[in-house]
């Protein structure tokens, strides 16, 4: 865990290579920010201006009109997405940590085979299983709303969460567990009292990952949450794009609103994401 302790920063001396490094960083930053610039600028224009100007022109008369229209449509869905993402993220993280713990620390026969079979689930193309999925959900009465969506996201989140936690727990020394076992702790007891408390960095990675992917997911959202009062935000965002007439400024304003929580998560927790990865979460 020593790597988690930040090495003291050496004061940056001015060297030519520093200038080059900054130049490259700025060039990269421009590449990453260019689309963001387009989104923001467009969202502040009026419909007339959007249909007459190029992408890079600043709005002549900036207006928040588009945000207003987007907000009206999206506000209820925003709440739905929260209701969906929070339990789905927590549940899949918990299941993942349990699996990761068992599969890394209790190497029973065929543990590796089970892990491989679980992991493969991460890679299936979701469109290909839509119809059986739908029939199954209808059969168990979970089609149509958020509970069904939660189930689906938890299930398809199991592989990645298991992977991350298994790799994370692999770095925990076996001796720690052996000692606890000597003291008579149970399998579950070790998990609760030893593994969970040290797995915060793993949870951060998993939760950021799951939060973002569930928040941004569209295919399941549109097919499973048929009840219009239960729609997540991505569906509302798509609904802003009319089938015949596209009001780009409203779409862009909507995109900003929809992306706000995930952007916030990355800005606030981005560094912990890297630290979590650093702590072994995604190493091969």
């Amino acid at each position: 865990m020593s790597v988690l302790v930040a090495t003291p920063r050496t004061a940056t001396r001015w060297r030519p290579s520093t200038a080059v490094a900054y130049a490259l960083l700025i060039a990269l930053a421009v590449f990453y920010l260019l689309p963001m610039f387009a989104i923001v600028v467009t969202s502040l224009k009026s419909f007339n201006e959007v249909s007459r100007s190029t992408l890079w022109e600043l709005p002549k008369a900036p207006t928040f009109e588009a945000f207003g229209s987007a907000f009206d449509v999206m506000a209820p869905s925003f709440f739905n997405s929260v209701l969906l993402v929070v339990p789905a993220t927590i549940l899949s993280a918990l299941l993942g940590s349990l699996n990761g713990y068992v599969l890394s620390k209790w190497k029973f026969r065929s543990a590796n085979a089970i892990f491989a079979l679980l992991l493969f689930g991460m890679f299936i193309p979701y469109q290909s299983i839509l119809i059986p999925l739908f029939q199954f959900l209808s059969a168990i009465g979970l089609y149509g709303g958020i509970p069904g969506l939660i189930l689906v996201h938890v299930v398809y989140g199991i592989p990645i969460c298991t992977l991350i936690f298994r790799n994370y727990f692999a770095t925990v020394p076996r001796e720690l567990l052996e000692a606890a076992r000597m003291d008579g702790a149970s399998v579950l007891g070790i998990f609760r009292h030893i593994m969970l408390p040290i797995s915060v960095p793993g949870f951060v990675v998993v939760m950021i990952w799951q939060f973002t992917s569930i928040w941004n997911e569209f295919l399941f959202a549109v097919t499973i949450a048929q009840d219009p009062t239960q729609r997540p935000i991505t569906v509302a965002l798509q609904n802003l794009a009319g089938s015949l007439l596209s009001q780009y400024q409203v779409q862009m304003a909507g995109a900003l609103l929809a992306a706000a929580p995930t952007l916030l998560v990355y800005i606030l927790l981005g560094r912990y994401f890297v630290r979590g990865l650093l702590a072994g979460s995604l190493k091969g």
């Binding site: 990453y32 689309p35 973002t212 997911e217 569209f218 798509q238 929809a258 995930t262 994401f273």
Partner: peptide, 17 residues
């Protein structure tokens, strides 16, 4: 943070922009 923020955006938005 700048390099990571596109991860927070959905493919739908990326595609449109």
């Amino acid at each position: 943070n700048i390099f990571m923020f596109p991860l927070a955006i959905s493919f739908i938005v990326t595609g449109t922009v």
